[in-house]
Design a protein around this nucleic acid. Structure first.
Length: 347
DNA sequence: ACCCAGGATCTAC
DNA sequence: GTAGATCATGGG
């Protein structure tokens, strides 16, 4: 099936597992999509480039490879109906990321390098309630712990999803699996969390003071769920305020929800990492939040969300890989000494 | 022991 | 309206 130049095919392994193969999309790299900090339920399987995750009440395994004709995207445990009804939207396949990268690259050399480094990132269209709760958990927290909290919440209150033996065989063929996990759990719905107290949430996932926020937010959400048409368009600051009605949601978390649901792409969530990027590369001094926001809105405009993801991924991965070569100004302490080991990055 | 993590909220001025 | 302290939890 052809669509927007994409060649989408449903296939089956010899043992009967359906999978979707997509060719003709050069703007998709599983590692960059799943490790750029926008999602918490996709995990790279050991000794593989295969990512297994839960979304939309489905379990899938995704990887990218390439041959002489270009990139091949594989979504395993999905048929054409799954793709059309869910994955196509989830992976934002309708959007032209080459165009976005080209536009950002015209702005300055930092964005050009960031977009090249994060080539293949896409903004996932994640479910609003899951994204809301996930990013309440993200406040003053670190990514491994956030992932753990979400996994425990899902296992305790979410719907069980049984995967086939064929799916597990597929995983085993592509990665070093220790033990067989045949049951996954969807992220709980607001209804499933409706009578859960903060104490129970705390006992379940040890999320500290954020548990009270979740209890309150679930109650608010049941009475007043996120209304896409009132936040997707119109004033950006109004959209943010709408989300700040939920307990535990401030400006930064609101922007994350707007961006990582795909509801808006003109927001620029500023966390401690992105703040370093702004101050080191663009503003050349420490600035108050309000001033940083004025700059990002003006400079990045409608592409702010994409710029933010490329820059976030660059500084996070760059720090982790100690790749000081990429943008020396970025990977420096305030005193100017390099923070990396000086090894060459592989990019 | 101390610092940090994709910050938000409460309090005091 | 805005600075400063406080908020659990676990890993470095």
């Amino acid at each position: 099936m052809m669509r927007n130049g994409l060649n989408i095919t449903e296939r089956h392994t010899e043992y009967g597992l359906p999978y979707i193969e997509i060719r003709g999309c050069e703007d998709f790299q599983a590692a960059h999509i799943f490790e750029c900090g926008q999602c918490f339920r996709w995990n790279r399987l050991p000794d593989s480039n295969l990512y297994c995750g839960v979304a939309g009440g489905r379990v899938a395994a995704v990887h990218t490879s390439c041959d002489a004709t270009g990139t091949i995207i594989t979504i395993a445990n999905a048929d054409l109906a799954d793709f059309e009804s869910f994955w196509k939207s989830y992976f934002d396949f309708e959007r032209d990321y080459s165009k976005i990268k080209a536009e950002l690259s015209k702005k300055d050399s930092y964005l050009r390098e960031a977009a090249a480094f994060g080539n293949g990132i896409r903004i996932l269209r994640q479910e609003p309630f899951e994204t809301l709760i996930s990013f309440i958990l993200s406040a003053n927290n670190n990514i491994p712990r956030i992932k753990g909290c979400i996994e425990k919440l899902s296992a305790a209150y979410g719907a069980a999803i049984e995967v086939s033996g064929a799916f597990y065989r597929y995983l085993r063929e592509h990665a070093q699996i220790e033990e067989e996990q045949r049951t996954f759990y969807a992220f709980p719905t607001a209804e499933q969390l409706s009578n859960v107290t903060a104490e129970e949430i705390s006992a379940c996932c040890k999320a500290g003071y954020r548990c009270g926020y979740i209890e309150k937010t679930v109650r608010t959400y049941l009475k007043q769920p996120i209304c896409p048409q009132s936040v997707c368009s119109g004033d950006r600051l109004y959209a943010r305020k709408q989300l700040q009605l939920y307990a535990g949601v401030g400006p930064k978390v609101a922007d994350c929800i707007l961006l990582f649901t795909g509801m808006r792409t003109d927001v620029f969530p500023v966390d401690v990492w992105v703040r370093r990027v702004l101050e080191r590369l663009y503003l050349h001094k420490e600035v108050p939040q309000q001033q940083a926001e004025l700059f990002t809105a003006e400079y990045f405009g409608n592409l702010a969300g994409f710029a933010q993801q490329y820059l976030f991924y660059l500084i996070r991965e760059g720090s982790r890989l100690k790749s000081v070569q990429i943008i020396p100004d970025l990977f420096c302490y305030e005193n100017g000494s390099p923070c990396g080991s000086g090894e060459m990055s592989q990019l």
